[in-house]
Computed example of a mutant assay.
Amino acid sequence: MRTGPVVLLLFLLLAAGCSAAPAQSAPAVPVAATASVVPSGFNGTDVAWLQLVIPMEDKALRLLDLAAERGSEPAVRRLAGQVRDSHRAELLDLHRILDRTGLPATNVHEGHDMPGMVTTDRFTLISSTTGPRFDSHFLQALKAHLAQTAHISRGEAQSGANAGTKALARSIASARGTELGELDQLSP
């Protein structure tokens, strides 16, 4: 295996802040789960991006579903619904590409706390609030998620090898920019 894709994979995972325990000083990177098998037509960046974005989107969907129903402001509920719908469509595309790699849909980041990830603790905190406080917590979490997925998607678009994966990454990065602009209009 060439070292370039492995080094880039490590960089992406480290840039994403992937760590098994946030208190550790050095991130624990599950390299064996991604770098040992890179399917033909893909590189380590493609695989790492797919294996990171899919669980991030899955977890964000739970929060988006909740906010579409419980947001105190109609504009918050509307934005949550729109973002949720686009995330669901993107998630289908992400899974289709992952299926083409032949790699399992295993979440190699299970239990990791990464920037932009809607963790169980954060979801619990947000779901326990109501009214404007709910909206505020939701918008903060959504902003972190959108910014991080835009960041790592730009990295995939620049350094990935698979044309379809890079095109989806560009599309997601662009969508996140639009969604962040809409979110900024709602944030105090």
Rank of each mutant, 00 (worst) to 15 (best):
L50Q: 02
Q158S: 11
P74D: 12
A68T: 10
S72E: 14
A144G: 12
E57P: 00
G116N: 05
H151S: 02
A173T: 14
I97R: 09
A157S: 15
F11E: 15
W49Y: 11
D46R: 01
S25T: 15
M114K: 06
N162H: 13
L50Y: 04
H151G: 02
L63E: 09
H145K: 07
R96N: 13
Q24T: 07
S36L: 15
A67V: 10
I152G: 01
L61W: 02
E179V: 08
D113V: 14
L79M: 03
S127N: 11
F11S: 13
S19N: 13
T124W: 01
T124F: 06
S86F: 01
R96C: 11
F42L: 10
S159E: 05
T124Q: 10
A169F: 09
P27Y: 05
N43D: 15
R2T: 13
A68R: 08
E110W: 01
R122W: 04
A163R: 11
S127C: 06
E156L: 15
V118N: 13
L91S: 14
G81F: 02
D93Y: 00
P39I: 10
G164P: 04
V31A: 15
D184T: 10
L92A: 13
N162G: 06
A105K: 13
A163N: 04
P115I: 05
G116Y: 15
L79C: 10
P132T: 08
T124S: 07
L139H: 01
I152Y: 09
P132Q: 02
G164N: 08
P188I: 07
A163P: 14
Q51G: 02
A20S: 06
R70H: 15
T178K: 14
H87Y: 07
R154P: 02
L180F: 07
T130K: 13
P74M: 09
L98F: 12
D99S: 08
L98A: 10
T165P: 01
T129A: 14
L66E: 12
